[in-house]
Design a protein around this nucleic acid. Sequence first.
DNA 1: TCATGGCGA
DNA 2: TCACGTCGCCATGAT
Length: 487
Amino acid sequence: MLHLLGAEGQNAISFDLELALYCLDPEKRWDLQSLCHNFQKPQTTLDPKEPGYHAVYLRIFKNVMAEIKQELKDKGLWNLYQDLELPLVTALAQMEAYGILVDPTKLTDISLELEGTMEKLTETIYAEAGEEFNINSPKQLGVILFDKLGLPVLKRTKTGPSTSAEVLEELSDHPIVASVLEYRQVAKLKSTYTDSLADLISPETKRIHSTFNQTVTATGRLSSTHPNLQNIPVRTKEGRRIREAFVAPEGHVLLMADYSQIELRLLAHLSGDPILTDAFRSGQDIHAQTAAEVFGLALDEVTDEERSAAKAINFGIIYGISSFGLAKGINLTRAQAQEYIDSYFLRYPMVKAYLDGLVELGKKEGYVQTLSGRRRYLPNLKSRNYALRSFAARTAMNTPIQGSAADIIKLAMLKVYQALKDAGLKTRMLLQVHDELVLETPLEELDVAARLVKREMEEVYPLDVPLKVGVSYGPNWRDVQSFDYKE
DNA sequence: TCATGGCGA
DNA sequence: TCACGTCGCCATGAT
């Protein structure tokens, strides 16, 4: 459980120290020298090769830890460290050690099929281009599309015409562009998800043992590496196939439990807005409800398109909205987007006041906070540079929501971990994907485990609105059915 | 090593 | 006016 900070093999600090520093300021990066400089008086110079290094190191560690403990207490962050982040280490270690079972033949099948598709698409693209080139190279692709075929340049990057998916969508009337988009999708799946995933299956356990990084993100979320199991495709049918390779062993199933709209529920709780709060208390379709409010309709008059626009608005609110960003998201003019935003804030004045208040408070105190008290320092709220200042303002609006959701699911993980242990169950937590937990459970435990997980997650932190958890299960991560706990 | 592009919540 | 929704990880090509 030793983590290295700074240069590999030297200046190592213990993980509990790293964790404590992360609780103090999730964005600050320390090394041993700066620690000594800040916390050790007088400053001590250290040479790892010198005899006695470890004794000196331990003395420094002890002194530094004592000072950091005091600082955590002064800032109201001691509980975050002591009762949340530190115990979570054990649960994460178990998840990493246990791993998730992956069926390599399934990965191979998908890989071979994707390869076939790529070859066909490559032929098609070469034929339409009239020559062979590296489709993976945006530069070479640009030459073909914009110089040779004369397609219009809709957007530029620093280095040349953009060939991003967004741009190519606009140009996809041309057959070569449609093929390139499809090629990109398939190539991405193959290189990122089938081939590299297969390399990470442990020969001993036949499982993939990802690393859950606890001190990386600015908001308090976890991140996952080697591989990143938090971005396995789900949106498209083709991409979702990857999930079929993540399986449960014989006699077991995977159990998925995800928080429904946890960030919007937090927005309701934190802002105290009555319309939003009532919507969640009465179990409304929140996006349809937002559409009804923003467009002045009755709930049953809302079309799919309006609901979808309202969904984009809701996400925009969470991210620190701008009319430009919203317009880009749902293909509106900027003016229309601004009208939607104005209309939203007219109907949800407490949300407006809450978000404005966050920016004000951030400016005054120098930081914003999550439910657990975790801080994010935002000095740029006072910047004279518009770009920096507005970025900081969006961060001030997003961090308390995203970070509080992270607090809640982390606490839920502790509860679930402990409850499974207390109940003597064989069910194991495998993954956390921001608002979702993936567990592995013996079939005979499914019913009791599903109820336990749902209860612990929903009751972990009572808010002004209920937390709702959807539970599903299946033989793999793709083919799941919802678990009806009333059965 | 950086830029671009793309996958997730 | 500006520049343009949050947080991540990773593959690829160009430098």
